[in-house]
C-alpha cells in the first residue's frame, strides 16, 4: 500500500535526490547529449516541491497531475514532456485516490510508461529511459503476480531499472540527440535511464523509511 502522504514525501525526496545528482546527470549528458539533463531535472523538481504545498491536501491523482504539469512547463528539453506525460497519465488513472494498492501502483506506473512511449516513440534498446522502465515494470509485475507486497515488488522494480540503466552503456543510441553520435554513443550510460532509476529508487526509499 502507498498512501497519499508517501506520494508527497516521494516527490519531495525526489527534489533533493535530483539536486544531489545534478552534476552526475549533467556529466552523463555532456558525454552524449547537450549537458543539461541534471540542471533541467533539478530545476523541474524544485518547482514541483514548491507546487506540492498547494496540492498536498488533494488526492493522489491530482498531486500526480500537478507534478506532470509543473514538469512540462519547467524542465524543457526532451525529458520535460516525457516525465511530464508520465505523471499526467499516472494521475489520470489514480483520480480521487487516497492510497494505492500494489495493483493500483502497477497500473499507475504502466499508464505513465505508455505515455512516455507514445510521446517519445522509443522502443527497447534505443538507449533511452525506456530501457530502464521496461525491465523495472516487468520485474514489478512478476513480483505482484507472485503475491509480493508493494515494497517487495518495488525493490524488484528498482533492481530491474538499475540493470536496464547499466545495460544502456554498450548500446548505440537511435533516438534523441545522442543518436547523431552514431558509434560514439557506445560506452556511455544513458542519462534518462539514470534519472528513471533514481525516481524509482526514491519511491522505494520513501516506503522503506516510513
Amino acid at each position: 500500500m502507498v498512501t497519499k502522504e508517501q506520494i508527497v514525501r516521494w516527490l519531495e525526496r525526489l527534489a533533493s535526490v535530483l539536486a544531489e545528482n545534478k552534476a552526475y546527470l549533467t556529466d552523463l549528458d555532456s558525454a552524449i547529449g547537450d549537458a543539461d539533463h541534471g540542471t533541467n531535472m533539478a530545476r523541474g523538481f524544485a518547482k514541483v516541491a514548491e507546487k506540492l504545498v498547494s496540492v498536498a491536501d488533494t488526492d493522489i491523482g491530482n498531486i500526480l497531475k500537478a507534478t506532470g504539469m509543473t514538469l512540462m512547463s519547467s524542465v524543457g528539453g526532451a525529458s520535460g514532456p516525457l516525465y511530464g506525460t508520465f505523471f499526467m497519465r499516472g494521475g489520470a488513472v489514480t483520480a480521487s485516490r487516497e492510497e494505492l494498492s500494489v495493483e493500483d501502483l502497477g497500473e499507475m506506473l504502466h499508464a505513465g510508461m505508455q505515455g512516455i512511449q507514445q510521446r517519445g516513440r522509443a522502443i527497447a534498446e534505443d538507449k533511452t529511459m525506456i530501457d530502464a522502465w521496461i525491465p523495472a515494470l516487468a520485474a514489478y509485475d512478476t513480483a505482484r503476480i507472485a503475491g509480493e507486497d508493494t515494497a517487495a515488488a518495488l525493490r524488484r522494480a528498482v533492481a530491474g531499472a538499475e540493470a536496464g540503466m547499466k545495460a544502456t552503456i554498450p548500446l548505440q543510441a537511435r533516438k534523441g540527440r545522442a543518436s547523431y553520435l552514431g558509434e560514439r554513443s557506445i560506452g556511455h550510460q544513458d542519462p534518462g535511464a539514470t534519472s528513471t532509476y533514481l525516481m524509482l529508487k526514491a519511491l522505494l526509499d520513501t516506503l522503506e523509511s516510513s
Binding site: G76, A78, G80, P81, L82, R119
Partner: peptide, 11 residues
C-alpha cells in the same frame, strides 16, 4: 527537428 523541440511542440 530536435527531439526536445518536437516533443514540447507536440504537447
Amino acid at each position: 527537428n530536435y527531439t526536445g523541440d518536437v516533443l514540447n511542440f507536440e504537447a
